[in-house]
């Protein structure tokens, strides 16, 4: 009797385990949607961006420490002027220079990936800025390699000068990236709000009152207003990028983008009101 009970219990437990695992496997197969290549690529890009953000933060911290060490070594070198202090400052410079290059390489790589992932940027402008970033990135990789192999103190000074002369180009590339990303984000929001408006319009078509028609017209007027400002701003930014003169546009970023931002905020609140009245 006892033996039979044990066999029954063992069979019950086994079937429970098997049944559970089988059902979960089947459920997984059923629930997992067929993902297309675009979705997979987007997910990969988003993962890459997250990794780059973490790497960038870590490298920036490392660079700050190396910069501090270089400052100390340089003070010692200026005071002592000994061979040991020259050796120390040269090695500290190598580390700080290489990390500075690496921080910029990672930063530009991060901006490049963010631009590629952005949905609101016009393709031609996207390509232009991505190419610009890649050019600066290649220069930095080469500079870093030379820093790592350089031995002489005077040669270090010439490498330092090269970087200083190039810094405006890096800043220009960074400004271009930051500006198209900011405007692209606003464009993306605009596109989404237009889709919401279309959905509301379809519901409105079934029944409408005088008040609702007036509210809808106000909303459409606001959407058109934002669209006009957006188009104007894209043209202006595009011209600045083509001329490699984005710094002034960038320094007036808030002034240039705030009208779009406020317009979008107003549009969103209008749409919410329209939705409430439906």
């Amino acid at each position: 009797m006892k033996k039979k009970l044990l066999i029954f219990l063992a069979f019950f437990g086994f079937s429970f385990l098997i049944g559970g695992s089988l059902s979960s496997a089947v459920a997984q197969q059923v629930l997992e949607p067929v993902r297309n290549e675009e979705v997979v690529a987007r997910e990969r890009l988003e993962k890459e961006i997250e990794e780059l953000k973490t790497t960038y933060r870590g490298q920036l911290t490392e660079y700050r420490d190396a910069d501090k060490d270089f400052g100390i070594a340089k003070d010692q070198y200026n005071k002592l002027q000994t061979l040991a202090s020259i050796n120390k400052v040269t090695e500290a410079a190598r580390k700080a220079f290489a990390l500075r290059d690496q921080v910029l390489i990672t930063y530009l790589e991060l901006q490049r990936s963010r631009i590629i992932a952005s949905e609101g940027i016009e393709l031609s402008l996207k390509e232009l800025v991505v190419k610009r970033i890649e050019v600066e990135g290649r220069w930095l990789v080469d500079h870093k390699q030379r820093v790592e192999t350089m031995l002489d103190r005077t040669q270090f000074n010439s490498l330092a000068d090269e970087f200083t002369e190039k810094s405006n180009d890096f800043e220009e590339a960074s400004d271009q990236a930051a500006m198209i990303l900011s405007l692209g984000d606003l464009q993306d929001v605009y596109d989404r709000l237009v889709l919401v408006r279309k959905d509301i319009f379809e519901i409105e078509a079934q029944s409408s009152s005088a008040d609702r028609t007036r509210a809808s017209k106000e909303t459409d007027r606001m959407i058109t207003e934002v669209k006009v400002i957006l188009e104007k701003t894209w043209i202006e930014l595009g011209n600045n990028i083509k001329k490699d003169k984005t710094s002034s546009f960038s320094s007036n970023k808030t002034k240039n983008l705030d009208p779009i931002y406020s317009g979008l905020n107003k549009t969103a609140s209008f749409l919410r009101e329209l939705l409430r009245e439906l």
């Binding site: 960038y56 920036l60 660079y63 910069d67 270089f70 340089k74 070198y77 400052v89 040269t90 410079a93 700080a96 220079f97 500075r100 921080v103 910029l104 930063y107 991060l110 901006q111 963010r114 103190r153 270090f156 000074n157 330092a160 000068d161 970087f163 200083t164 810094s167 890096f170 800043e171 960074s174 400004d175 930051a178 900011s182 606003l186 970023k253 808030t254 240039n256 983008l257 705030d258 779009i260 931002y261």
Partner: peptide, 17 residues
């Protein structure tokens, strides 16, 4: 637009021995 997520890195562009 008043906030910038990733501004140009705070690096010293004039490091020199």
């Amino acid at each position: 637009p008043t906030t910038e997520k990733y501004p140009f890195p705070p690096i010293n562009t004039e490091l020199r021995i």
